[in-house]
Amino acid sequence: MVDVSQHNLVPEHSVLEEDEIEEMLTEYDIDRTDLPKIQRRDPGLPDEAEVGDVIKIVRDSRTTDQAVVYRLVVE
């Protein structure tokens, strides 16, 4: 079977630690529930991601070197 998360077109996904989450939420002055959502069954998610986790996604960008986005894992 093919592991989609290892494909070269899938951006890097990583689960944030609680202290990193708090720092990011404070920086953007938002609540965790204000984040865009990503479903737990998304094939790009790391295996250890669980509902309620915050995922950091780092994408290549034409205008900046990298674009960082955050998603809240939902059922």
Rank of each mutant, 00 (worst) to 15 (best):
M1S: 13
V2D: 15
V2S: 13
V4F: 15
V4C: 15
S5V: 10
S5I: 12
S5T: 14
N8V: 10
P11W: 00
S14H: 00
S14E: 08
S14R: 11
V15T: 03
V15S: 00
L16C: 02
E17H: 05
E20Y: 06
I21D: 09
I21P: 14
I21R: 04
E22K: 08
E23P: 05
E23C: 02
E23T: 09
T26N: 02
T26A: 03
E27Y: 08
E27Q: 07
D29H: 00
I30S: 06
R32M: 12
D34A: 05
P36A: 07
K37T: 14
K37N: 14
I38K: 13
Q39D: 13
Q39W: 02
Q39E: 14
R40G: 14
R41I: 08
D42E: 15
P43H: 04
G44K: 07
G44R: 10
G44N: 12
L45V: 06
P46Q: 05
P46H: 04
P46L: 08
P46S: 06
D47S: 11
E48S: 10
A49N: 09
E50K: 13
E50C: 03
E50T: 10
G52H: 11
G52S: 12
D53M: 06
D53K: 06
I55G: 12
V58N: 13
S61C: 05
S61T: 04
T64A: 05
D65E: 09
D65A: 02
A67I: 01
V68H: 12
V69G: 11
Y70K: 10
Y70C: 11
L72S: 10
V74R: 04
E75H: 07
E75Q: 10
